[in-house]
Each structure stands twice: as C-alpha cells, then as structure tokens.
Nucleic acid binder design. Structure first.
Length: 287
DNA sequence: AAGAGGCCCTGATAGC
DNA sequence: TGCTATCAGGGCCTCT
C-alpha cells in the first residue's frame, strides 16, 4: 500500500510530467472518496499552472500558479495514471505511475492538460483531494505532524524524550503520524526487524542503543525502497507486465512461518495482530 | 488526556 | 459453481 516511498515515487514521475503544465479542464467522475471532492475543485484548478509537485509524509502537494495548492492522499488503493489523449479527450496511449493499466472501474478524477491527462483511480475510496488556499494554511495543515524520518528533528534527543513519557508499544508509536510521519504498517515491521526490537516492547523500556537503531533503519528502509521504486504496492507490475517486487525485499512482512533471514538466527517469523494491524517479527532475534 | 479500538470501502482469496 | 467470511490498511472518530 502506498507508504512514504511509494508516494515519493509517484511524486517524482508526476513532477517530471506535469511541472509547468496548464490545467485545461477537470472532470469529476465520482465525488465519493474518503472525503467528498470539494464542489469548487474543478473551478479552483482550471487554467492554473502546476508549478511543482511536492510531498510531505504520504501526502502529495500540488503547487499552483495562483498561490494555492491541492493535496492528494492515495489512501490504500489510490493510483495515478498518465494517459495520452487527442483533442476530443480520446485516449491514444496509456502509461502509469504506480499501476500498469488504466482500470475501467473506480476512476474518480481526470485532470486534463493539452495532450494528456492524469486519472485518479481508487477502488476502496480511502484516498482524498483537498484544496489549500494559501501558504499559511498549508503550513498549518501539517503543523501537528511529526517529523519525517529524514528530518533533522528526528534525532536521538527527540526519540529519548518522546519515549520517556509514553506507555505505548514501539510498533504502535512508529505508526503514529504525530510522532513520525510517513511510516506505514509494512515498513514499521521491517524497521523493527533490522533494529532487533520486539514490536510489543513498551517505548519507555527502550535503551539508547535501540533509539540509535530506529534512527538508522527508519531512514534506510524508506530510502532503499524509494531507490527500488516502491515495493508495497500489492499488485504492482512493471510496464512489461511482469509481476512486481512486492514482498521480495521484505525481511519479515508477509513471511509468517518462514525462517528468519539473519544467517546466524534459527528463528521462525511470527505474525501477531498489534492494535488491529498485522505485525511480523522474529521472536528469536527481536527482543 | 492518552491510548485503544471501530469504522470507512472494495477486491482477492479461502473454505465449504 | 456459488455462496459467505476474512483480510488488506491510513487516518479520523469515539469511548474509556
């Protein structure tokens, strides 16, 4: 599912394609997403130039020429498609960012440019669009989000002071966007495996060494995944139609009952539901 | 006030 | 073959 790395991969390709392009028209096919697409969305975007596509956490931020923005969150099943069109909005070719073919069902929004359009598809409707009127409101929108793992603010002092006053387990806290932004369920398991920390461990019991590992591996796991082009899209396929790399690079996620990948470890990967989310870990090397 | 759990949604898959 | 049950999970909401 789209976690920070997948959203970043989408951002990079989008930025390449639509930077400095003018929106000709917006067609709303189905307003119903997690939140209804705002009524004025089409009017707000029309004839604006998209100056760049940014990202914070799992949110795409589209900068518009008239000092406004719109946000796009992909939820769990949102995909963005690039489609070449002729003057009559007829498709001449399809490409993709995080899914291979333009699906027939669940296309919600079309943003039309001169000779191509981007189509937002979302079967489970957990994604959403949001209009942000000015830079101040944009700042305010993310004010209560924790730092991204790459941020300078995500440091040893921050971790130690946050852990001291909390009674949650570490898995739970890694998913808490107020503590750290951009980590989702899959990468939380992966980060804790590399850090050799049991996901059930209460954070106030973590040692300095544990904090250092969390810092190192949260960066590493996310950056590696960005380099590989995102790995948590379940049905990801390459343009040639080959099955994607979902699960291939995971150490624990989806590997219940299999051997721990650490060469010296004889452990078996366990699956446990922690706060309503599947969590994978090796009991033997994660303490 | 922090923390736990419910809920939104559809498609894929398992089991009978 | 066709039915039902379960699972996937981000983030907001409610309840304790």
């Amino acid at each position: 599912m789209p976690e920070l790395p997948e959203v970043e991969v989408v951002r990079q390709s989008l930025n390449k394609k639509i930077k400095r392009k003018k929106v000709k028209k917006v067609i709303i096919k189905n307003r119903n997403l997690r939140f209804k697409i705002p009524k004025n969305f089409s009017v707000f975007l029309k004839r604006q130039i998209i100056t760049k596509v940014d990202r914070f956490s799992k949110y795409l931020i589209f900068h518009l020429s008239e000092k406004g923005y719109f946000l796009l969150h992909l939820g769990m099943s949102g995909t963005v498609h690039l489609v070449k069109i002729n003057k009559n909005n007829r498709i001449t070719n399809t490409s993709f960012y995080n899914s291979p073919v333009l699906p027939k069902k669940h296309n919600h929004v079309e943003i039309i440019f001169e000779d191509f359009k981007i189509v937002y598809n979302d079967p489970r409707r957990f994604g959403f669009f949001e209009i942000i009127g000015n830079p101040l409101l944009l700042k305010k929108r993310f004010l209560h989000f924790g730092p991204e793992p790459f941020s300078r603010d995500f440091n040893l002092r921050y971790l130690i002071s946050s852990f001291k006053k909390k009674k949650k387990n570490i898995k739970n806290l890694l998913l808490d966007q107020k503590f750290v932004s951009g980590i989702g369920n899959i990468y939380a398991s992966e980060i804790l495996f590399l850090s050799k920390i049991n996901p059930n461990k209460k954070v106030h019991l973590l040692k300095r060494r544990n904090c250092e590992n969390i810092l190192i591996y949260s960066k590493k796991v996310l950056l590696d995944s960005i380099k590989k082009g995102g790995s948590t899209i379940r049905d990801f396929k390459s343009s040639s139609g080959k099955i994607g790399n979902f699960q291939k690079n995971f150490n624990v996620y989806g590997r219940e009952g299999l051997n721990c990948k650490l060469p010296q470890c004889k452990g078996i990967i366990k699956k446990k539901i922690i706060s309503n989310r599947s969590t994978f870990f090796c009991e033997s090397c994660q303490k």
